[in-house]
Amino acid sequence: MKVEVSNLKKYFGSTRAVDDVSFSFASGQVVGFVGPNGAGKTTTMRILATLDEPTAGQATIDGVSVIEDPERARQLVGYVPDSLPTHRDISVHEYLDFFARAYGLKSLKRRQTVDSVEEFTNLSGIRDKMLVALSKGMKQRVTLARALLHDPPVLIMDEPAAGLDPRARIELRELLRVLSGQGKAILISSHILTELAEICHGAVIIEHGKILMAGGIGDLLSDSVPRRTVLIRVLGRQEELHRELLQTPHIESARLNGEEVAAEVSGTDEACAELLAAVIARGYRVVEFKQQRANLEEIFMNVTKGVVQ
């Protein structure tokens, strides 16, 4: 199972909402779709969910084109939009039963599916509660449950964590981990980048309709930040180490923070390993040597300009 987006374009008049976007991801992968407001995330996701038609380009799910064969593609996609259900006078169970019917599930199979999805999303206890009476977190779970009713191999989730409290966010993160473990391919957009970094295998950073960066989280971190910050704590001789580091090749800068020396190392993990070996060889008693990793937020800030269309 592979989701492939190639040279996707969507123009609204002279506005290029999505401009030649290409990326792909596979079963079991969670991919973060990151970008400022108006970057083209929702438009791309709506195209993948068969709700919009691109101006040009192609998007396929397991080889099925969402453009040429939307009916078949719909069977493969579960879509979680950025808004919560607003239906009045309907309980959680009735709401899910309605969508199970809408997906064409029949009698016993429908009942079993709704029950199991309720159980998976931890909704069994509140299945008879009215939808409008639910908290945002509960509603988000209902939305996720609705998207899972037809057991799609691909989930497209547009800002699912928006407005959720920390507990609900953690619960959602756990559900996504389980779903990814079940082999579902998940494309998720969110503004809460620290959370994305924790669950995502890869990320696509988009701005002004164009992809700025895409790849595995590890690759992105190394690609976007060519320098690494290494924190070294030694027993005594900190000032001496600081001076020595300033004269060492691959070290761009170094500063003394109390008992710790922070060094900016240019190069790969190899350079860091060599630095550690050199520090030990010079007789320093190393207590701690750690690499301070850049996070997704930092990458995002580095590569985007905050341009909104």
Binding site: A49, T50, E71, D82, S83, T86, F99, A102, R146
Partner: peptide, 20 residues
Amino acid sequence: VRLAAERSETNLDLLFITTI
């Protein structure tokens, strides 16, 4: 009124991606 309230783009979109 009920349909107008439900006719927020997303609610109907959810139906369009089903087989209905």
